[in-house]
Design a protein around this nucleic acid. Sequence first.
DNA 1: AGCAGGTAGTCAAGCAGCTTGACCATCTAT
DNA 2: ATAGATGGTCAAGCTGCTTGACTACCTGCT
Lengths: 148, 148
Amino acid sequence: MQNSEAMALSAALLAVAGELTQRIHDGVEARGFEGLRPAHGFAFTRLAPGGATVTELAVHLGVTKQAASQLVDEIVRKGYAERRPHPHDARARLVVLTEQGWACTRAAEEAAAEAVRPWVELLGEREVRALRDRLMRIAPSGPIKPNW
Amino acid sequence: MQNSEAMALSAALLAVAGELTQRIHDGVEARGFEGLRPAHGFAFTRLAPGGATVTELAVHLGVTKQAASQLVDEIVRKGYAERRPHPHDARARLVVLTEQGWACTRAAEEAAAEAVRPWVELLGEREVRALRDRLMRIAPSGPIKPNW
DNA sequence: AGCAGGTAGTCAAGCAGCTTGACCATCTAT
DNA sequence: ATAGATGGTCAAGCTGCTTGACTACCTGCT
């Protein structure tokens, strides 16, 4: 594959990602969850399964644990999560979503579906599923680095 | 398309975009262009065709013109671009890439090709081209908002 | 021609989110 | 039992962005 093709692919991917992020963020706000940034959303996806420690969150977000701790402060203060004692480690605290946190997560899913809808109209559902499958095969499992 | 599917697609897209950004950035650095951030790369793509004014750059990046001006200061100081008088407007200045700026752009293309290579090995060139075509059809023309 | 309002760019101050560094409490391995 | 590693927080500092204010220049209307 030529360099210029690779660059065109990269540019398109980044442009789509940027717009998607914006649309999901706007959709979440429109549903009444304010004062959140996209980084909080990335945190929610890590917290959702069964909670996580600050350090785990820091690894997932690709930031220092101080930054992660500060982010947790914010979402706790706003009522989206709470710190509970960790069941197996007295040093650690398990950060889990509150009911409001779950509601926000569901709102994000709705917003994502809304953001993707124009793609379905343009490409068809079959093509969008194909896109999803290809992306999922090349998606890394490492940290989500939002800082670019 | 279900909400959960849309969310999975979004997550995969953002993860891939994040990793791609990181790889291109690393590749550019490995080729000897240091002290640059991904945002500079987005600026270069706007400057490349025939230069741009600070205000045009600001719109493209989705930031204030003050921030864009500051970014131009940086890449001028580092020798990647220069400010020339605008041919038709004495208020404006046309920011154009220097030879070093072009060299950096070529390095970014090489890095992009390198970053995409594993995808080609995994999916095949035909599939990656299909991915590119789909993404280009849904890519917006608006500002690249790197701040998420 | 001349003036009013809009636009390009810069200077200055402030802020938000991140980093590095230091520290204590607790866990784990020897 | 003790030494080192790990989870978390406090504090200070930096960087890239924002808002606000200003000058120089362009454009359209009278």
